[in-house]
Computed example of a mutant assay.
Amino acid sequence: MVSSNPTPKKLKTLPTRRKRAKAVIAALREEFPDTKCSLIHQDAWQLLVATVLSAQCTDARVNMVTPELFRLFPTPQHFIDAPIEEIEATIRSTGFYRNKAKSLKGAATRIMAEHDGQVPDQMAQLVKVPGVGRKTANVVLGEIWNKPDGVVVDTHVGRISRKLGLTDQKDPVKVEKQLSRLMPQSEYRDFGHLLIDHGRKTCRARAPKCDACNLYRWCETRA
């Protein structure tokens, strides 16, 4: 039996963790050869919006909401002009809809005022956009421009990375920093996708399918 909230052991050496990360990526690529971002989007703005909405919400639910959202408000300027109550009503089912609507209007305002309506392609500028932290910024940078600044760390990535002994941190920014030292930048994007796929299919937080796990040999919380 594996604990769903393990206490990390002392980290192994950096070379050992790099070797393990490489093996994990190879194993998961065999299982998920077509791994990709599951948020449906047409451009950088739509992906930014979808990623903001995905906080504490499933990607499947976000994908149900965004078609109508972008039909009603197709550009950042439309988000600025829309009454916030209309945005709230459209995104209500994603949860925390008041805070998310406020963030989206703020993001649209910043992008129109300072970036001529274009989502910036640099981390330093992206994290100044309301509602955008390093996770959202790395999603956009990785998917749109293929230049993430670090590994995208969501709950799956952080939890599974701790189980595998790749990090001993819980703060997402610290997890990102540790994980990003274990692989080349070219692997940042897919590493996140692969661990998310694995977390959804096999290494579930409440009921992990350890008998079917192809990473079990590296799991440091296994019985």
Rank of each mutant, 00 (worst) to 15 (best):
133 G>S: 05
100 K>V: 00
78 H>F: 00
80 I>C: 06
77 Q>L: 03
98 R>W: 04
89 A>W: 10
88 E>Y: 04
87 I>L: 01
82 A>L: 03
92 R>C: 08
103 S>Y: 12
112 M>V: 10
65 V>K: 04
134 R>H: 00
152 V>F: 13
128 K>V: 05
170 K>R: 15
140 V>E: 02
194 L>P: 15
122 Q>K: 15
101 A>S: 15
166 L>M: 10
86 E>H: 06
161 S>G: 12
123 M>Q: 00
127 V>P: 11
141 L>M: 08
66 T>H: 13
151 V>T: 05
174 K>G: 10
188 Y>D: 03
72 L>I: 04
171 D>G: 06
66 T>K: 12
155 T>L: 07
96 F>A: 02
58 T>C: 02
186 S>C: 13
92 R>S: 11
147 K>T: 12
184 P>L: 05
90 T>G: 15
116 D>T: 07
181 R>V: 14
86 E>T: 09
90 T>M: 15
151 V>A: 01
111 I>R: 02
157 V>R: 05
117 G>V: 01
119 V>S: 10
65 V>S: 08
83 P>Q: 14
66 T>V: 13
195 L>R: 06
177 K>R: 14
134 R>C: 00
177 K>V: 08
154 D>R: 09
61 R>Y: 08
59 D>L: 03
74 P>G: 06
60 A>T: 07
115 H>W: 09
140 V>S: 02
151 V>Q: 01
85 E>V: 11
113 A>I: 04
153 V>R: 04
144 I>T: 15
108 A>C: 11
139 V>D: 02
131 G>L: 07
179 L>F: 10
194 L>A: 15
122 Q>G: 13
75 T>R: 01
91 I>A: 09
148 P>T: 04
145 W>E: 03
88 E>S: 12
63 N>W: 14
64 M>K: 14
109 T>Y: 08
96 F>S: 01
162 R>G: 09
172 P>N: 09
120 P>H: 12
85 E>G: 08
85 E>P: 11
163 K>H: 09
168 D>A: 14
155 T>D: 08
67 P>T: 11
184 P>W: 00
61 R>F: 04
106 G>Y: 03
182 L>T: 14
173 V>Y: 00
185 Q>H: 07
